[in-house]
């Protein structure tokens, strides 16, 4: 389950917009909007290219004061949510 090497990427055909440092993503097929807070927005940016949870954490650690182990748990949990909502896919 806890696989920092799995590669994720955004689904094609999604639209999103930035609002004051936060992001709203539209999944047209599901007719649903998904809001991402500040860190979520940064992760969403990193998901523009194929990326692993480990790489995301490395990116975040450079910008935020986070504990690497807790970060990986949080990021994997967040990616699972994005996966379940059809916003990203695992390659």
């Amino acid at each position: 389950m806890r696989d920092p090497e799995a590669v994720y990427q955004r689904q094609a055909d999604l639209s999103w917009t930035e609002m004051d440092g936060e992001t709203v993503v539209l999944n047209v097929d599901a007719n649903d909007y998904f809001g991402l807070g500040g860190v979520g927005t940064r992760i969403w940016e990193l998901l523009a290219r194929p990326v692993t949870a480990g790489q995301i954490c490395a990116g975040l650690a450079a910008e935020y004061d986070v504990d690497a182990d807790a970060c990986l748990d949080d990021v994997l949990g967040f990616l699972a949510q994005l996966l379940a909502s059809g916003m990203i896919r695992q390659r």
């Binding site: 639209s15 917009t17 930035e18 609002m19 539209l26 047209v28 909007y33």
Partner: peptide
């Protein structure tokens, strides 16, 4: 089919 465009405008 213009919700993506609309979201952009909202942003």
């Amino acid at each position: 089919g213009l919700l993506p465009d609309h979201l952009d405008r909202c942003g």
